[in-house]
Design a protein around this nucleic acid. Structure first.
Lengths: 207, 207
DNA sequence: CAAATTTATTGAACAGTGTTCAAAAATGCA
DNA sequence: TGCATTTTTGAACACTGTTCAATAAATTTG
C-alpha cells in the first residue's frame, strides 16, 4: 500500500507547511495580528484547509510554542560546557534572558499567552515546560550537592530563580520598566539576576 | 454660564458611566471577551457614543488600569502600620501577591497587557506604575538605612524584588506552574518570596 | 412661543476576525 | 472510462474595533 504511505506523507507535509507559514506570519506580525486567513494566504491554501489539519488556532499556536521550547532547550543545554554546576546556573540565567530578548514573540508564546495552553488537555501535563524546568532543577540539585548553593529545597530554588528571571524579562517586554533609562535596562536585568543568585551561594568569594 | 457647567458635569458623568460599565464587563468576562458593543449594551447607549468620550478601546483600558493602581496603592499603603521598614517590605510582598490573586484581571491590566500602555504618549511617563514603584523603593531605602537590608543599590533591590513577585504571580495566573500540585502553589509562592527577601537581610535571625 | 442653530446620539457600514460545512475539485480504483 | 473516496474550497455566520452621515435632542436666537 505505497499510496497510503505517500498520502500520509503528504498530509504530514501540508501540516508542516501550515506550521511553517504560521511561524513566519507570527514572527513577522506578532501574535495579535496573526490570523488564519493570513497563514492560508501565505501558503496559498484556503482558510478551510487549515481546519482539516488543526482543530483550531490555539492548536497551531501550541505547536509553535512546542518548537520554541526546542529552541530554548537547545540554548540551555549548551551551558553544559561549564564544569561547575554553579557556573551553569549563571549561564542558564544569562542564556534565558538573551533568548527572551532575541525572541520576544516566542517567549510570549511559551510563558505569557493563554492561547497555546488552551490546546492542552484539562488539568494535565505541560510537557514542554516540564522538560526545561526539570533540566534547570537538575543543575540546581547538583550545585546544592556540591555545596555551591545553600541547602535550600531545590524546588524552591528553581521556582524562585525562574520567577525572578521571568519577571525581569516580562516586565521589560511589556514595557513596564519605563521609569528606567532604556539603555540601562538590559545590563540591570542581568546584574539583578546575578546578584540574586549570588545571595544563595554558600561560599561567596567576592572579589 | 450655569448651563455649560451642567453640560460639562453631564459629560463627566457619562464618561464615568462608560468606565463603570467597562469595568463591570471587564471583570465579568475578562479582557479577551470585553467588547465595545458589550459595554455600550450594558449602559444602554450605542457603540458610537463611546467613541465621543474615548479615543479608542485602549484609552478605556488605560483608565481602568489607572483605577486598578489606585486600589493596589491603597493596599500597599496599609502596610505602613508596621513600624520597622523590613516588616513593611515583607508585608508589601504579601499584599502584592494577595492583590494579584484576588484581582487577576486588574493585575493583567496593570502589568501584563499591552493595550492600556498604548494609550500612553510615546516614550513617556507611566505615572501609575512610577507611583507604586517609588513607594516601594522608599521603603527599601529606609530598610537599608536602618541596616535591616544589605547595602545593595535600592534600585537593584527594587527591581529584583518586584521582578520576583511579578514572575511568581504571572507564571501562576498564566498557568505555567502546572508541574506543581495546585494546592501547594500559593504557599510556595509566598514562601519563595519571603526566603528570597531574607537572603538580602543583614542580620539573619532564622526561625 | 417658534424657528434656527448647535450639540449629542445613533446605527448602518467597512474591513477585519475564528470557524463551519455543503459543494466542488482532485485523486484512486475497477 | 465510470464510480467512490479524499481533499480543498470559499461563502456564510456571528463576532470584532472604528467611522461618519443622518437623526434626535437641547439650546439660543428672533
Amino acid at each position: 500500500m505505497g499510496i497510503n504511505e505517500r498520502k500520509e506523507r503528504e498530509k504530514a507535509e501540508l501540516s508542516q507547511l501550515i506550521l511553517k507559514g504560521a511561524m513566519e506570519v507570527f514572527l513577522e506580525v506578532g501574535f495579535e495580528n496573526t490570523s488564519i486567513r493570513k497563514i492560508a494566504e501565505r501558503i496559498e491554501y484556503s482558510p478551510g484547509t487549515i481546519y482539516v489539519y488543526f482543530k483550531d488556532k490555539d492548536e497551531i499556536l501550541h505547536e509553535l510554542h512546542h518548537t520554541a521550547f526546542d529552541q530554548l532547550m537547545e540554548v540551555m543545554e549548551k551551558t553544559a560546557v561549564h564544569q561547575e554546576p554553579i557556573d551553569q546556573v549563571y549561564a542558564i540565567g544569562d542564556s534565558y534572558i538573551t533568548f527572551a530578548l532575541e525572541n520576544p514573540q516566542l517567549y510570549d508564546l511559551m510563558f505569557v499567552l493563554r492561547a497555546p495552553m488552551n490546546a492542552i488537555n484539562p488539568e494535565c501535563e505541560w510537557e514542554d515546560g516540564f522538560r526545561t524546568y526539570e533540566y534547570f532543577k537538575s543543575v540546581l540539585i547538583k550545585a546544592v550537592e556540591k555545596g555551591q548553593l545553600k541547602p535550600v529545597d531545590p524546588e524552591v530554588l528553581c521556582v524562585t530563580f525562574w520567577a525572578t528571571v521571568h519577571g525581569l524579562v516580562t516586565l521589560y517586554l511589556r514595557e513596564r520598566f519605563q521609569n528606567l533609562p532604556q539603555e540601562q535596562i538590559e545590563p540591570l536585568m542581568r546584574y539583578s539576576l546575578r546578584e540574586m543568585v549570588k545571595q544563595y551561594e554558600l561560599v561567596t568569594s567576592d572579589q
